[in-house]
Design a protein around this nucleic acid. Sequence first.
RNA 1: GCGCCCGUAGCUCAGCGGAUAGAGCAGGGGACUUCUAAUCCCAAGGCCGCAGGUUCGAAUCCUGCCGGGCGCGCCA
Length: 576
Amino acid sequence: MTVPSLASSLSDSVTAAAARLGMADLAPQIRRSEHADFQADGLLAAARTLRRNPRQVAADVVAGLPDDGLLASAGVAGPGFVNIELTDRALLAQLASRLGDVRLGIGMPESGVTTVIDYSQPNIAKEMHVGHLRSTIIGDALVRILEHLGGTVVRRNHIGDWGTQFGMLIQYQVEHPDPPAPDDTGAMGRLATLYRRARGEFDTDSTFADRARRRVVALQAGDPSTVAAWRDIVAESTRYFTHVYDRLGVRLTDADTVGESAYNAALPEVADDLERRGVAVTSDGALCVFFDDLRGPDGEPTPLIVRKRDGGFGYAATDLAALRQRVVELHADRLLYVVDVRQALHFRMVFDTARRAGWLPSTVAAVHVAFGTVLGPDGRPFKTRAGDTVRLVDLLTEAVDRAREVVAAKNPGLTGSALDERAQQVGIGAVKYADLATNRTRDYVYDPQRMLALVGNTGVYLQYAHARVRSILAHADGADATVDVTAALEPAERALILDLDAFADTLAEVVAGHEPHRLCGYLYRLAQTFTAFYEHCPVLRATGPQRANRLALCHLTGDTLRTGLHLLGIPTPTHL
RNA sequence: GCGCCCGUAGCUCAGCGGAUAGAGCAGGGGACUUCUAAUCCCAAGGCCGCAGGUUCGAAUCCUGCCGGGCGCGCCA
């Protein structure tokens, strides 16, 4: 069941009233206001184009608003602002409607829409780092939100499981069977060591480099023992990724992993098709797609290279093959790529190429959901002091350890596995919230100190607010929370209902712009509004309808916070 | 050279056509006999990079500068 928000109901009323005044295409913007419950914007501009007196137009619209029990008062202020106050009864009825639906009246606006979302994308035999963290967490949040809104979501973990580095790895392994045995616990140590040593030998021993290159050829030719070795390495690495995803609470599985190698067979055909359609042409021996407005520093056109001069295929070909498969076979209505902003040009070229080739119809949206570079507290790319990239697992361990200290200090009774679990929920929640809370486009300062301070605008604040709601409800012990719409409301209660009612609209905004940070902002505001309510309006000490209404408010707040945090992938323990 | 992103409080960031620009952190002052003080309240802190333009109205839209980051032919 979809419960229209108060704002959208008001928007309909204002639109209808304006239409009766001859302003048919007015799109009024209803927003929260400091001066009233809501204000209607856009009338001033409309009056201007009609060359009518703005205050008069606003007054006419106000006079034309329906007497449907929603409005307590509506008036004109300043040059033509419309201020609208709603009745307590309308707010309480809205509270009851949302509470009466298990999905809080959100509805299923994504029903029938298939989204294929590409995120995480770690590389085989390499450690996951903070860049993967951003992609993984943002992608996971978008997946959860789209699914919750009733959409069909196909997850794609486009791992880097193919390329020349495998010749090096396999050849080194063949020549040095001595490194420690594969580790099933999810540790990355063996492969990381293998990679480092192989790289070292590759760079210093040209005869080894030659043998490694021959091994690449063997792999591409399908030599059984080489392919078997490759499979083992991929499997070992994938176990590690799964281990990290489990720790993060991210729902990515083997079934979602479709690596670059999966498209190998399709690459020649992709290239041929592009050439046949005249989209790609040969230049300097390579098969290229050119773009009218793209030129390099030397003034020469910048191509998308589909097939290299040596006949090999680059990642552009792989991305095109994957895109085509996602549209044609997976029937995607929307393609999302949660990838570092530095690949913006690449995706522009890939999407443009796909459109020209006819693989990407105008009915299918393709979006590069870009995110900024992760910087350290010094404002430079996040590295260890030695200049190495920071291992994701170390970061998570640090976050959970810090959280454990804080949890233990606040809650001395908690020990053993219960403490570990709480530390995990708080620490991972803090990491995720910090990553999701800011606009994804801009570069992002990763400051463990700040993030794990666990005060202020953090995941813990929201978890804490949620726990306080649950605590009240636990004390109430199932007491009557039936909404009495005839009761009077205090300002803090009205503010809370108005915030709660904006949940569904917020989710719609998040989907429209692929911006999870809007949900963070919403939840933080809601938690603040709830805290004000918590300070001003005793629940358990209240009596009669007021008590029941306040309990209802607690229920809806708790459910909204829990749902919202879950959509961000953040756990919501009932006690903190 | 061209393109993309970003310049908002000391720091980290919201706000992206509406009324007096908001949070958090740090620093200052206060509040725990209370439904969890991991909280709250008060005070302080701003030429919204600069300059033009559009508009009744601009942090928000347009243009040009300045500053920073990133990208631009066989890596992914």
